[in-house]
């Protein structure tokens, strides 16, 4: 039986069949991987391009936590409603129906985090902002996006590359003979590549 099976596979049709099966498996795998990389569906298709690009609202207005602590925060309906209750479009636009409903029912808008970091990484926004990084360095230019998408794959190598290159740049840009300054630069470098900086 096994023999006849192998023989059947040797026929032209059999070879085509093998090819089809192989392609099906491959495309299935590709589709599965693509699913995990998709930007998730948000409760409202929030147009960053209008709010940031046209209206020039600073990022920190809606995400103020970035200045103070670990998490920038996603705005609650209170913040949306603060402006939107004064706008006519709120009543007319079908896209804003979820917001109006949420305000009426006092339910939250459950935004889905996109720039997702696993919870064994303790990322704090504050020192990054304090170090002079702009939001778009990591988050991309949101003034050109509607619904937010991450501009890059976030993994440890990405984090570490930046930490390494920044500390190297700092050392190169501040050539010094002062041992104290050199030591503090070295310490910064050690700190920024230490596992305990992010993992605990």
């Amino acid at each position: 039986m096994i023999k006849s099976f192998f023989n059947a596979l040797n026929q032209p049709l059999g070879r085509v069949g093998v090819l089809i099966v192989f392609l099906a498996l491959l495309s299935g795998a590709v589709w599965g991987i693509a699913q995990t990389q998709k930007t998730p569906q948000q409760p409202i298709d929030f147009p960053h391009n209008i709010h940031v690009g046209v209206l020039k609202i600073p990022c920190l207005y809606c995400h103020p936590g970035a200045l103070r602590g670990p998490s920038p925060g996603l705005p609650t309906i209170t913040k949306c409603w603060g402006c939107h209750q004064q706008l006519d479009i709120t009543k007319t636009s079908p896209k804003l129906v979820p917001l109006v409903q949420a305000v009426q029912n006092n339910t939250p808008l459950q935004w889905v985090p996109v720039m997702w970091i696993p919870d064994f990484v303790h990322f704090v926004h504050r020192p990054h902002i304090a170090a002079g990084l702009n939001c778009e360095t990591c988050h991309g230019d949101v003034s050109k996006m509607t619904v937010y998408q991450t501009p890059q794959v976030i993994n440890m190598g990405w984090c570490l590359n930046c930490h390494r290159s920044k500390t190297e740049d700092n050392a190169q840009n501040n050539p010094t003979n002062d041992p104290a300054v050199a030591a503090s630069l070295a310490e910064e470098r050690i700190k920024l590549t230490d596992c305990s900086t992010c993992h605990y």
Partner: peptide
């Protein structure tokens, strides 16, 4: 199980 050079502590990196 790795040494933290910056804090001189023993770390356990759970995810690793």
């Amino acid at each position: 199980s790795v040494h933290s050079e910056s804090e001189d502590l023993n770390l356990q990196v759970y995810n690793r």
